Simulated assay, not measured.
Amino acid sequence: MSRAKLAALGRTSWDTALEILTRHACAWADLDGFHLGDAPRAVPLTTHVWAWRDTRLLRLRVDRTECVIGLLDLDPAADGEEVDVTTRHSQTWPLGEGRVGVADEWRSRSVTLYEVAGLMPLTFARLNGGLT
């Protein structure tokens, strides 16, 4: 277990979220598949967008044209509430697994999950070996 700083950036419009997501790698899944890259210009048809750069991890809960943004910063000098974080190393969908329709390029990829326990547990994610 490690310590990190958690900040609630609150409910915001997608346009404001795009400003926050500048220079972050973003990952989300929608009806067209799994995506990794810059944030989509239009609100994606998804429930969550995960984003990261350096020590910063963002978790966006998408709700129609708005989203609720949480920020977890692994830098102990960052602003925010100090929280305990459990780090888990996992993989995306395994090759040959047929329940999820994603391209093979997204299968068996390394991903790091950062879990913040509490009354409302939060999970932040970083896809490894791709954009940083």
Rank of each mutant, 00 (worst) to 15 (best):
Y114M: 09
L95C: 07
D75P: 07
A7Q: 14
R64E: 11
I20S: 08
E105F: 00
M120G: 05
S13M: 02
R3L: 07
P76G: 11
W106Q: 05
T123H: 00
P94W: 01
W14C: 09
R99P: 08
T46D: 00
V102N: 12
D30E: 10
A17V: 13
H89S: 12
L6G: 05
A77E: 09
C26S: 08
C67K: 00
R109W: 01
L9M: 10
G70F: 08
L127F: 00
V102F: 08
D84A: 14
L119E: 15
W106M: 01
L45R: 12
C26N: 04
D30I: 10
T132G: 06
A78V: 06
R41T: 01
L36A: 02
C67E: 00
D38Q: 14
V85G: 10
L31V: 08
F34P: 04
L71P: 03
G118C: 03
T132M: 08
T132K: 05
R88W: 00
C67H: 05
H24P: 01
L60K: 00
L31F: 10
W50V: 09
L127H: 06
T92D: 04
T47L: 08
E105T: 03
V102S: 09
G101R: 05
A39R: 02
T123P: 02
E19W: 07
W52D: 02
G37F: 14
T22N: 13
T132R: 03
V62D: 05
R126I: 04
S108L: 05
R61M: 12
G80M: 07
L6H: 10
R23T: 13
D54Y: 01
G70L: 05
A42S: 11
K5N: 12
L71V: 03
D38N: 15
G98D: 13
V85T: 07
P76T: 11
G101H: 07
R61E: 14
T16I: 13
G33P: 01
A125H: 01
T12V: 11
H48V: 15
D73P: 07
R107Y: 05
R126K: 11
R11I: 07
R53P: 06
G98I: 10
V49H: 01
D15K: 11
S13F: 00
H35E: 14
L72P: 05
L57N: 08
A25S: 11
L36M: 04
T112A: 15
E81L: 10
L18G: 06
L60F: 14
W50C: 02
A17K: 03
P76R: 00
